[in-house]
Computed example of a mutant assay.
Amino acid sequence: MADSPDTASQHRVGEDTRAGMRGRLLGPGQRTCVWIASADSDTPSLVHETDEILLEAPNWSADAGSLLLNGDGRLWRLDLGSHPARPVEVPLDGVPPINNDHVLSPDGTHVYLSGMDGHLYRAPLGSGTGMGAGTSTGTRLTADDGMLHYLHGISPDGGTLACVVIPRDSNGVPGRLALMPAEGGPIRVVDTGEGHIDGPEYSPDGGWILLNTEAFTTTPGHAQIARLPAGTGPLERLVASGTVDWFPHTAPDGRLATYVAFPPGTLGHPENLDVAVHLVATDAWETPLRTFPLFGGQGTLNVNSWAPDSRRFAFVSYPVSEH
């Protein structure tokens, strides 16, 4: 879930009030670094670096040719076939400035977006490498129901969105899991017990929803990775750790997953911390296969960034040069 200017909560520590509706900004001496990691290597590849714009939350295109990221309240395409790779804006009509909660439809033809106004939107992308060519007209999906909506997942059949809802004008109210039709319609809030939840995302077979939750601890902010049967059922804890763990993302073939681990005692998922991206097998979540330490947090891995081949994934770091 991205930070929002509409409400202040311990679950959204790290909001950059300098940026307003444009989103977060790079600090002095700071850079955006977009990386691609392989399940078979400890060394990720740097595919884009800039000190001009803070880019966040890569989605991989269905044709594996590009990444979609947000930055400056807008959507950008990073063509992985160009050298050097440069971000190109994807023009969106009818969509307000966006945050880092965005996902692609299973066929890759549409992007679902969270606006900084707290509503969800859908916009066409075309097929193949057409992302960024021409202007897409977006459609608002959510009603004025008194809630802020943060999108994180879409079911494998493309029919249902999984999001987090929080009452507007609230302070410290935990997020709740909500499901809604991908075409727009009524929202159904799902009981996940006590504590804030975030990052709900469907498993590739559609049978589970993965998320991070504070339901298993009384320590403030101590999120852990869990899952529940899609739509209903008890939470099942997948990771019991001393770190604060957010945003589980499963590879398309269901065998591997990633998540980001924050330092113990972290509240929410703030920016500018030493964190680690963990790669795990889905039959052994508590034993990382590989770990990628970096300076980042917010924006590093908010949404699913797996490639269609299930062997590569993208993430973002935000290093600061020493003076």
Rank of each mutant, 00 (worst) to 15 (best):
L113I: 01
A223Y: 12
L55H: 05
F216Q: 07
E183P: 04
G108I: 00
D93E: 13
T17N: 08
A8L: 15
A215I: 08
D6G: 15
L210N: 14
D191V: 08
A257I: 05
E89N: 04
H102G: 06
A133T: 15
A123Q: 05
Q224M: 14
Q10H: 00
I225E: 06
A281T: 04
L55G: 06
F216H: 11
A162F: 08
R22Q: 14
L25V: 10
F315C: 02
E52L: 09
M116R: 13
N171W: 13
D6E: 15
G115P: 06
F295R: 11
T43E: 14
H323W: 15
P264Q: 03
I154F: 09
G233R: 00
L211D: 05
L54I: 04
G118M: 03
L104Q: 07
Y259G: 04
L67E: 07
G108N: 00
G128Y: 09
F315H: 02
L273H: 06
T109R: 02
S45I: 08
I225A: 06
V190H: 03
V90C: 07
H278D: 03
F315L: 06
S45R: 11
A85H: 01
H149E: 09
G20K: 05
G158M: 09
Q298H: 15
H11G: 06
S127Y: 07
G299P: 04
D6S: 15
R22I: 12
V260N: 01
L78N: 03
V320C: 10
G268V: 07
L80P: 03
D16Y: 11
D198A: 14
P5C: 12
D16H: 11
R176E: 15
A226P: 12
P229C: 10
G175S: 07
S305W: 10
H269D: 07
F292Y: 12
N70K: 01
G73C: 06
P97K: 05
V275S: 01
G14L: 10
E52V: 04
E322F: 14
A123G: 10
D79T: 04
W60Q: 02
N272M: 09
D101I: 01
V277K: 03
V239K: 05
P200T: 12
P319I: 08
A19T: 10
A19G: 15
I197R: 04
R311M: 02
G23A: 08
S170C: 08
Q10I: 01
